[in-house]
Every structure is written in structure tokens, then in C-alpha cells.
Amino acid sequence: MNGQRGSTDEQSVADLARRLLAVDTDGWSPEGVTTMADGLGWARGGTADRPVLVTGRSSGDARLRPVGTYEKPYTDGESYVELAVPVAIVAPDAAAQAAAFRAAGEELTAALGRPSVMGSHGDMGPFYDSGPLWGAPFMRWRGMPDTLELRAGTSGPELVLQPTGPAENWFWRQGIGEEHAISGFFGSNRDPANAGLSFPGGWTARSWETVTRSLGHFLDALPAEATALGIGIGMPLYGRARGSAPLLFDVACGDRLSIGCFAPDGVDAASLGWGTVTEHPGTASVWRDDDPVWRVDAGGPGEPEGRALAEMLVATASAAGVSEPAGLIVGGEAEYVDGYHVTYYGLGLPTG
């Protein structure tokens, strides 16, 4: 079917969200999706492999995701696992994408309240999708039987309505312990909507190359994702060496990423790539002029060179006597972000 029906009125993101939350999905069966389309006033279109609902919105039609090979193990009778509605077409640079996501998130928060879950899908979205290169932030208003998510799409933010069970079942079952089994980070708050929410186990990096890869990906996208989500992350990293684990790095990120280094005596931090406040004056707003002495201003959305930063951190940790990845420890303080308890699944590092 290639119906042409669809509203020509451009609804606000908040109004669209309310409509999505009010529709009857009826188990996400073919009949249920037809009922949902009728409730929204949108016609069925596309093909069997790439079905859409014709929205009439300038940002494009809504995409239905049928249950296929990758989705089937996590479903319980559903024929579809999500309806993704683009809400804006945005310039491809990280700053523009992050700003558009943040604007949509602020509008939704004003209308629906704070999201019960937020985080980043990392480089592996639900059901093994790959996210945008600039970052993969999401905000989620969890419900039963359906959940609404604001997600970073390929061209701009998208509102995604999904049956709660399959998405959470997929996420929980990724906790198999293999390297890179889960990416990104996941934060939940004390909203009653999170009752019964299950959390997967993590994984542990087994080599410095794994740490370099995972840390590089995290740092590369962090200022864009923090900007998009409207959060600030403070992450101390401790280095276990010679029987103690002093503070080694301090990662501070809001709309810019700054990293401080507390290199022990005998480590030539300058030769490893660290500068001082003179070379990185923007960091003076993060730390005092002399504490830490060594630091780097890695920039705002789209600017950090994640791989190079990760290589510098790993080289410094090794020079400081940290002999294995398990000796690089994420401080427990980093788990508390603006009222959310956050797990950094994508890093593969211990927390303590």
C-alpha cells in the first residue's frame, strides 16, 4: 500500500510525543500497527521490507521496524519493534546535531517530565544497529507496554515508540562478558516508571588495545553527547600501581572536554603530550592554575581526537606503573550524574 493520507499540520515535538503515547499499539501485530496508523491519521506505505507510515511532516515519514533475524530472539509475539519518527533535519556536524537533540529534549522534558532513562547507545544501538558517528544519545520515557525514546538519528533527532519488552530484553541479554559486548552508557533515576527495570552485566577489557579503542570512542563523542543530554560528567580515573591506587586522571565534560593528569614523580608528562594551563587556558575554569599541573583541552562537540587522547592516557598509565587494564579504575563518583545512576558499559573498566 502506498497511501497518500497524512496531516499537513506540523505538530510540535511535544504534541507529537503526546499523540504517540496515546495510540493503541495492540501488541505490535500487523492489525495493531494498522490500528496505530489509523489512530495517528497516517497511511501505510513503503514496502514489506521497509514499511513506513506517511506522516506529512517536513522531516520525513515514520519508519516501522519489522521483526527479522536480529529482532526475533528478543520478542514475544510482536511483529514490529519500533516506530521511528524523524522530528528535524539538521546539518550533519556534531554541534548542530547536538543542539537540535538538546532542543527537542528540553521541549519533551517540559511536556512529559524528566526522562526516566538517559544515556548513549555508543556504537551499537538496539538490535545491533549502528548509530550516528557524532554520538548516539537517547532519552527514554519508560512505560508499559510501550516506551517513548528520543534518539539520535542519521539526519537529526527522532521520536521512537517501541514495545518495552523487546528493547529491554535485547539490552539485558548483551551482558555476556565478552569484550565490547555492550557499548555506550546507561543512566536511570528513581522514577516509579523504572520499577522492574533490569540491568545487564558488564564486560572487562583484557588488553590495553581494547582500552584504547573503547576509551577513544567514549572520549570522541563525549562533549557532543553531554551537550545533547544537557548533563555534565566528572570522571576520576585511578591508577593501581605498587600497592596503591592514587588519582591519575580527571575527565571533566559538559559542552567541552577537559582532561587533567596527576602524573607521579618520574613520569615525563610533557613528552607524553600533556600541556599546562598556559597551553590550555580554557581549562582554568575547570581546575585551579596548578592542580593538576598537566592537562588538555580536547574541545567541544565533534572536536576531540578520541583515539589520540586514549593513546595518551594509556601511555601515561603505563608510565605510572599501571600494569594491566584492571588497574585503571573509574571512580564511583562518576556514576552519579544529575540525579541519574550511570553505568559506563562501553569502557570495560572496573568501578570503585
Rank of each mutant, 00 (worst) to 15 (best):
G300R: 06
R242M: 09
S271D: 09
G239E: 07
S285V: 12
H217C: 03
I259A: 08
S244D: 13
G282F: 02
L257K: 10
R295A: 10
V296D: 07
D291M: 11
A269S: 07
G239F: 05
P264G: 08
A263M: 01
T227G: 04
V267M: 10
V293N: 03
V267S: 11
G299Q: 11
V286A: 00
T283K: 02
T227K: 06
V277M: 02
D220Q: 15
P236Q: 03
D255E: 13
T227C: 03
E225Y: 03
A284P: 01
D265K: 13
F218M: 11
A245H: 11
V251D: 04
L229D: 09
R256F: 03
V277Q: 02
D268F: 07
L272C: 09
P236W: 02
D265V: 08
A270T: 12
S214N: 13
G299H: 10
D268E: 13
D268A: 14
M235N: 05
A269R: 05
G234D: 09
G275Q: 05
D291L: 13
E303N: 11
G260W: 01
V267Y: 10
I259H: 05
L237Y: 05
T283R: 02
A226L: 06
D291E: 15
G239Q: 08
W274A: 02
S271G: 15
G282P: 01
E303K: 14
S285A: 15
A226R: 07
D220I: 02
L247D: 09
A241W: 04
P292Q: 06
P264S: 08
G230C: 05
D255M: 04
E305C: 08
L247W: 04
G299F: 08
F249L: 10
C261R: 03
G254I: 00
D297E: 15
W294N: 07
V277Y: 03
C253P: 00
V286H: 00
G260I: 01
L229W: 06
G273T: 11
S285D: 14
R295N: 12
T276D: 13
L257A: 10
V286F: 00
G243L: 06
